[in-house]
């Protein structure tokens, strides 16, 4: 089944699903920093937070307790009539704009209720078809477990970015995610299936020898499946400090080296948007 293209967007839209099969590997941090960097390049970005935790609201400086009508849960409900509840964080206007649709604990209920819907896996795809977003980039931040909300994300995404930590647990989780991805694409008959943009080693700490070793081995581990491996995003406490302040790292520590770590991914996204 071909994915219907959003009608109102003149140019190509990338729907980037940031997925991992383990918690705390930087999904939300990546979402925010990629969004910010892309907006600095003049692109408009929407982040749809499908996660049940409040990290997205916390890290972006938004209220962690929005009314239900201002969450993605409302968008996925039968009551939604096309008015996307997007909010702009204080840092969301560097050039292009970043707008966020929050998730949070309400998503637990939404996840459960999905089981009762007719086109459950395609619910977000249907929303984006019926009520297209004008943003060039839509980022989906998802829960760490491969449940129904990740099916929803997979069905609508055009690209997939997979952060891993260089630990046995996270790497094994990545293996399971990739297996799940292949089987689900087939089961859901996604045609074309979302493209794997790459795997990105996140929270990389070069002090640890196991991480250094895995970093060297990773391209080879993924090579058999033709999967690209991005340069690492380094570990820094400043990420945590920035997230506490609800702003991206470049606004917290402008010349911090880690700010550059997101560029290879953003360059690929920009190139891919230009292709059209």
């Amino acid at each position: 089944m071909a994915k219907p293209a959003p009608i109102a967007t003149k140019t190509k839209q990338i729907v980037l699903w940031i997925g991992a099969n383990s918690g705390g590997v930087s999904k939300t941090t990546l979402a925010i920093h990629i969004a910010y960097e892309m907006a600095c390049h003049g692109l408009d970005v929407a982040i749809l937070d499908l996660d049940t935790n409040v990290s997205m609201a916390q890290f972006s400086g938004l209220s962690k307790n929005p009314p239900w009508e201002e969450t993605i849960s409302y968008v996925l409900s039968d009551e939604f009539s096309g008015n996307w509840p997007l909010v702009t964080p204080s840092w969301g206007n560097p050039n292009g704009k970043v707008e966020i649709c929050r998730g949070g604990p309400v998503m637990v209920q939404t996840g459960l209720e999905l089981a009762l819907k007719k086109r459950r896996e395609y619910i977000l795809q249907d929303r984006l078809t019926d009520f297209p977003l004008p943003h060039q980039l839509v980022i989906l931040d998802c829960p760490a477990t491969l449940g129904s909300l990740n099916d929803v994300a997979l069905a609508v995404s055009t690209h997939l970015l997979i952060p891993v930590e260089l630990t046995p647990k996270s790497l094994s989780g990545c293996d399971a995610l990739l297996t799940w991805y292949r089987l689900s694409c087939k089961e859901m008959r996604l045609n074309p299936p979302p493209q794997i943009l790459g795997v990105v080693p996140a929270r990389y700490n070069q002090e640890e020898s196991i991480q250094r070793d895995y970093l060297k081995l990773l391209p080879q581990m993924l090579g058999g499946q033709n999967i690209h491996c991005y340069p690492f995003i380094r570990y820094s406490r400043e990420f945590i400090n920035a997230s506490e302040r609800g702003i991206p790292l470049p606004l917290h520590r402008k010349s911090h080296k880690a700010c550059q770590d997101f560029l290879p991914i953003c360059n690929d996204l920009i190139a891919s948007l230009r292709d059209n």
Partner: peptide, 12 residues
Amino acid sequence: RNADFFSLSQQT
């Protein structure tokens, strides 16, 4: 170092 983390997805 064990680098065999991706055997499942590789097989798939």
